[in-house]
Design a binder for these strands. Structure first.
Lengths: 348, 348
DNA sequence: CTGAAAGCGCTTACAG
DNA sequence: CTGAAAGCGCTTACAG
């Protein structure tokens, strides 16, 4: 029990057979005699032999694990219910395939090094686009990849919703309710998006929001109709944001956020300031987290299928791993607007 | 760009140096001439060479990843905010150490096989105890391990709170408020606990709850003072539970749950049935998830530091990996009772 | 400073 | 049915 682990060599010696035979005993018993197999398994059992997984995978050129690159540090990534849902979706497919799911924190801020050294058969990352350093790494490593909420292109399989459209729709709803003084709370960019002009999800949504305003002939440069902010995607940051907005001169009548958890943080802050939601100020979210329905007031928000995104991305990766041609590399999942109670007409 | 990946052999040939030299160029350049190093790195760059992580780790006898065995299937495990928090805690430490975090689903129901074949340097699992099959596997694989919410023993490093005590305390509070008809909602056991008499967390808590009742001289066998149920740890299961309890003959005045998410599910169901919480029925939780504070009514619950549990377990594993003696292998973290608004006096 | 060689623990044509 | 041998892509004493 002490000392070194038993290896295939030990079993071979002890059982009086070759390493080949030992290997076959475990992986293809039909290729050796019943007698040999039994002897070998008995010895293996006695010595407590477990084939070394890394040696085995190394030999078989596989890892049996899918990678998910966390878009930010662990604290921010795993604190975000939307991302947790995506991870769950990926995990469900991994489980079905007998794979593990490797969560990859951007190594000391360097996603590139993390991706260079990850022992995975494929990688899913959010917000990827051709041209990024990590994509180059993945290409030279010949690892299949799929992006969620990234930029689709010929070389970049992707899973998305129509973010511009979704943002447009919910802003249209906000305007329909009569709001004309709106705080827009955007999201700070991911850890590995360097290009400051990149076509990110927040930017796509802003386009949609603005389109809705334009359509109404509204002047969104007047510094009152639309005031734009940004924060990280967490309850705490949402709370701080809500507090700031509460004390704004000529307080907006509606807050449009890009995430339910931020919306919930805002609402919490507003309540703590004694401001009633939605009576005094409306708040809308994005994602339709499970919390969105049981918070008070229940959130009016955009339902986007986070779980489904993870599942589809993972399924696509497995197709690529199996060298199958992927029917449609640019997957788009429908969203929908969920009307609950956090949005109402502005006061007076 | 096409064809096979470049290996150390290709670089050696192309650069006119040995594989040894190439290896040194990357890992210990001081051992070769500047000239050799530059030539090698240039060639490596040109051919797009990235050292194969698995080959490297295999050679170095390490994996650079920590394993976390999911206590149930992915859907149930990752849907549970408490577990998500534990994972985040583990992830924070992994990130700090430059490790990845491998989530291991119990392979087609078999945690044993999943643990046999996981490429990790150590494993954290919930509810482990000496004598379990997976522990045997870990021992023969010589992998360090730590359990969270498991059974501490000489061979089993552990992180826990005093579950019995915590349950006792919150039940005492419920009784102090005057409740004498209580529904207790326990948790169904984990995927790999086979021993039906095992000293699991739910059982420990039940002991605590019961102790509080006894102390009050209450008869908890009368089928009214205490009625016990159990469900999986999810909003949906909590909701179903709440619905069931609502329609119980001689409805209890308080529901004591072992998880906030279950409590929130119950409350949601009660509301939907037109039953007011806490006016008509009180509900208490366990965990103090972030949702516990922003749900309506805010939850009276037990605060247990899930994030901290994950961090401590991971730190302990890294000590074990480094072959350090672990100062205190049985870590106990303080809990506290959080009084909010979901518990009040029973009606009339 | 440099490289041939052994080793990590498996798998798998290949020859007998 | 069986086993010697090559191979997976690295690292690292060791000798020169």
């Amino acid at each position: 029990m002490q000392g070194k682990k038993a290896t295939i060599k030990d079993i071979a010696r002890e059982a009086g057979y070759s390493k080949t035979a030992v290997s076959f005993a475990f992986n293809d018993p039909s290729r050796i005699s019943v007698q040999a197999k039994e002897k070998i398994l008995a010895v293996a059992d006695r010595l407590g032999y477990i084939p070394d997984p890394m040696a085995r995978n190394f030999s078989l050129h596989r890892h049996m694990s899918l990678g998910f690159l966390l878009p930010q540090n662990v604290e921010s990534s795993l604190g975000n219910p939307y991302i947790d849902q995506v991870i769950e979706g990926i995990g469900i497919i991994c489980q079905k395939q007998g794979y593990t799911l490797t969560l990859i924190p951007p190594l000391e801020g360097s996603a590139v090094n993390a991706v260079r050294s990850a022992m995975v058969d494929g990688l899913i990352a959010m917000g990827m686009q051709v041209g990024m350093d990590i994509v180059e790494i993945l290409d030279t490593r010949k690892l299949p990849y799929v992006t969620i909420d990234g930029i689709a292109s010929k070389e970049m399989p992707s899973v998305n919703i129509k973010d511009e459209e979704a943002a447009y729709e919910i802003m249209k709803l906000v305007l329909k309710y009569g709001h004309r003084s709106i705080a827009l709370v955007s999201l700070t960019p991911d850890a590995f998006t360097k290009d400051s002009n990149a076509d990110t999800v927040p930017r796509r949504r802003v386009k949609g929001y603005v389109r809705a305003l334009k359509e109404q002939g509204l002047d969104f440069y007047d510094g009152k109709t639309l005031r734009q902010f940004a924060c990280d995607c967490s309850f705490e940051d949402g709370y701080a944001m809500g507090k700031d907005i509460a004390s704004l001169p000529s307080r907006p009548t509606a807050i449009v956020t890009m995430s339910d958890i931020v919306a919930i943080g805002c609402i919490s802050a507003l309540k703590d300031q004694g401001i009633k939601v939605p009576e005094e100020i409306s708040v809308v979210g994005f994602d339709n987290d499970s919390a969105a329905s049981y918070v008070t007031p229940p959130l009016t928000t955009v339902d986007q299928p986070a779980l489904e995104k993870g599942k589809m991305a993972a399924e696509a990766i497995f197709s690529l791993i199996a060298n199958e041609t992927i029917r449609n590399p640019h997957m788009e999942i429908p969203f929908s607007i969920i009307e609950r109670e956090s949005l109402s007409r502005p006061k007076e």
